[in-house]
Every structure is written in C-alpha cells, then in structure tokens.
C-alpha cells in the first residue's frame, strides 16, 4: 500500500510497487487528464508535479512517490475555474490536437512557480522536454509570457477562494 497526496487529498493505492505512476493514475485512480506518449520519459506527455517539480511519470515507479505531493492537470484548475496559466492557454488558442497539453501545462506551471518572469531562453530550457507534434511551441511561449505578465501585474488574490494553480 502506497500513500501520497494527490491534488491536495490523501490517497492510498494497492498496486505492484514497480507500476509507473502514470498507469496508477490512469488505470487505477481513473484520472485520465495525464497522457501516455512514449513510455521512456522522452516526450513529457505524462508530466506531473512531484513536490512542485515537473516529472516524467511513465517511468516513475509508484513506490517513489510515497508520502509525496503529486499534482496532475486536474489539480491545476478545471473548466469552471481555470488557473492563470490555463486561461492564457485558452486565450492564445495554444492547443491543436491537445494531447500533449496537460504535460505542457504542468511543465509551464513548474517554471512559473520557480521563476515568475522567465526569459525566452529560460522558457526554452524548461519546456524542451515536452514534445508537441502539432508544433504549438510558438503559442506555448506566447501564453507563458502572457501568464507571467499577469502574475506580475494585475493578479488579484481572493483569500476566500482556493488558490488556482498548483499548491506551492
């Protein structure tokens, strides 16, 4: 039995300890927002935040997340309450086929949490582990900059509302 925190809630799963976190999420916990792309940690479609760090979960055994904090795309926001980053994604029409975007948003969110105003080079460095076959990179970059600007500028914080975006 492995216990960890998933999107702010404690969960326990009883699976073989070598099962990758990705498949625990999809097949056992039935959270389908995180995607399978390559199975080798090469494309980033399976990215989740583990204690705030964007991590490839298709090669991460479930045993490795015992007692740690895991955030999936479902933990960033939802259609009724988009995070600042997701709002920027929508406004800039980032997704095309959309399949890789959960992973892209996880990596972008990790970047902005650690660096609220990244340079082009820093965006490239943080995002180049995530492949997009549709070639949405230019719009991803635009959206990250837009979100960064908002976070620096006019962002308001209402303490009565749960914080959008990942727990920090």
């Amino acid at each position: 039995m492995i216990s960890f925190e998933l999107n702010g809630k404690a969960v326990e799963v009883d699976v073989s300890l070598d099962t990758p976190l990705l498949w625990v999420m999809r097949d056992h916990l039935k959270l389908k927002g995180t995607k399978f792309g390559c199975g080798m940690g090469l494309c980033g479609a399976c990215s989740m935040l583990i204690d705030g760090v964007s991590t490839r979960t298709c090669i991460l055994p479930i045993a490795a997340v015992a007692n740690r904090k895991v955030t999936t795309i479902e933990g960033l926001g939802n259609p009724q309450m988009l995070s600042t980053l997701q709002q920027a994604w929508v406004e800039n029409s980032v997704p095309q086929c959309g399949y890789c975007q959960s992973g892209q948003l996880i990596s972008a969110s990790a970047l902005l949490n650690s660096n609220p105003n990244p340079s082009d080079q820093q965006i490239d460095d943080a995002m180049s582990g995530n492949i997009c076959r549709c070639g949405t990179y230019p719009n991803i970059k635009k959206a990250i900059k837009a979100a960064a600007g908002q976070q620096l500028g006019v962002q308001t914080f209402d303490p009565s509302q749960p914080r959008e975006g990942a727990e920090v």
Partner: peptide, 10 residues
C-alpha cells in the same frame, strides 16, 4: 476546444 484541451477534460 481550448478549455477542454487546457484542463485535461477533452
């Protein structure tokens, strides 16, 4: 399809 594809719900 921007919202569903930015929230993992598509």
């Amino acid at each position: 399809d921007g919202v569903s594809k930015s929230t993992g719900t598509a």
